[in-house]
Computed example of a mutant assay.
Amino acid sequence: MKAVLIRGHGGPERVEVGELPLPEPGPGEVRVRVRAAALNHLDLWVRKGWSGLMLSFPHVLGSDVAGVVDAVGPGVDEPKVGAEVVLAPGLSCGRCVRCRSGEENLCRGYAILGEHVSGGQAEAVVVPARNALPLPPNLSFEEAAAVPLTFLTAWHALVARARVRPGETVLVHAAGSGVGVAAVQIAKLHGARVIATAGSDAKLERARALGADEVVNYEAKDFVQEVKRLTQRRGVDVVFEHVGRKTWEGSILACAPGGRIVTVGATTGYDPPTDLRHVFYRQLSILGSTMGTSGELLEVLRFVGEGRLRPVVDRVLPLARVREAQALLADRAQFGKIVLTP
C-alpha cells in the first residue's frame, strides 16, 4: 500500500510517499481502507521529533481517518466488513482503572494514532475494533476525517476541563486552525459569547460565520486591549489557549478575576514567561487538557450528525501532495482542515 511516512526526524524533505506491506488485523482489530485522512500540526511535530519520542521507522503519519472496514480479526463482531467508519485517534489499554472509569485519555499507556504508533495517512490502517466508530450518514469521508482529533480536543478542554457555562465569555485564539474552528462552535453550542482571534481579516470573517460574536486581528491590534474594550474592562471567563509563547502572557492578562485558561497545545513555543502575581492575585485557574474520551467523541459525532457542529474542510489534496499540504499548514495558510485522499 502507499503511505505517507518518515524514516527519521527532520525537515519537510523527510516526508515521502512510499510503499509498505498491507497490514493484517489481529485479534480484536479491524482493517480500514482509508478514504480520507486529515492533517494536524501534530504531523509537523512528529516529523521534527522531540526528546522522548521513540518511534519505529518507517513511521506513518496521520491521526484523523475515515474509511470503510475491509477486514476484521478474530473475535470481532462489530463493525462488520463494509461499514463506513471514522476512527477515534486515542489508543489505551482498556484494562486499567482509568480506562474502566471512562477516562482513557488518562491511561498510563495512552497513545495517539500517528504520534506514538503509525497512523492513517495511507491506503489502509489497522486499529482496535473499538476505535472504529459509525460515520454520521450526512457526512462525506473528507468531512468526517476533519472531525476527530481537533473536535475531541476542543470538546474535552471546554466542556470537561473548563466547564464552560451559558452566558460566559470565551476567548478562542487562532480561530482559523482546525482546533480553533471546533472551539468556536463548541463554545457557542454551550451558550457562551465568543471572542475569536486570527491573523487575517479573511479568517475572522469566516470565524464570525461559524458563530463568533466578536473578532480581533491579533496581527493588527493588541488583543488584550480589544478584549478589555469588548468586555467593559472585565475580561473573559475562559481562554482557549493552544498557541503558547506568542499569546500566553496576553491570555493571562485577558482573564477576568476567577477566570480559567485551558491549554491544549503550544504551536509557537512551550516555554513562555508567566507572571505568577496575576495568577494568584486574580485567582486564575490554569488547566491542561489532552485529547478526550471515546464517549466524548461519540457525543461530538452526534452533534455533527445533527448539523449542530460543522467540520470545515479547507481543501482536499491527493496523498502524493503531502509536502505541499504540510507547507500550507506550517504557514497557517488554511482555514479549517487540509484533507488527503489516497
Rank of each mutant, 00 (worst) to 15 (best):
G49L: 11
G109K: 11
E84V: 13
C107P: 05
V34E: 08
C96K: 03
G73L: 13
G73C: 13
G109C: 06
G49M: 09
I112E: 09
G94K: 01
R100D: 04
S118T: 13
G52Y: 11
V76R: 00
K80G: 12
S101R: 06
G119N: 01
V81H: 01
L44V: 15
C99I: 09
P58D: 12
R100F: 01
L44C: 07
V68T: 14
G109S: 11
K48N: 11
G62M: 03
A38R: 03
V60P: 00
S63T: 01
G49R: 04
V81T: 06
L39Y: 01
R100K: 14
S101K: 05
R95I: 04
V117Y: 01
K80C: 08
A71W: 01
L44T: 14
V46F: 04
Q121H: 03
D77W: 07
F57M: 13
A36W: 03
Q121P: 00
D43S: 06
V97I: 14
V46S: 05
G119D: 00
S56L: 12
A83F: 02
V81Y: 04
V60F: 02
G114Q: 05
R33N: 03
G62P: 00
E103K: 11
V34K: 02
D70G: 02
L42W: 10
D43L: 05
R98F: 12
V117G: 04
R108P: 09
R108W: 10
R33Q: 10
A111F: 06
G73K: 09
V46R: 02
D43E: 14
E123K: 02
C99H: 02
I112D: 02
P58R: 11
V86Y: 12
V117L: 10
R108K: 08
V34P: 04
G49S: 07
L39H: 02
V60W: 01
Q121G: 00
E78M: 03
S56C: 11
E104T: 05
L106Y: 07
A36M: 07
C93K: 04
V76H: 01
E115K: 10
R98M: 14
V85M: 10
A36Q: 06
P74F: 00
G109A: 10
G90E: 02
K80D: 04
G75N: 03
V34R: 00
H116Y: 12
G82Q: 12
V85W: 01
W50Y: 14
A71P: 00
E78H: 08
P58Q: 13
G49E: 05
R95M: 09
V72I: 15
E104L: 10
F57E: 09
D43Q: 07
R47K: 15
D70E: 11
A88V: 07
C107Q: 07
P79H: 11
A38G: 15
V81L: 08
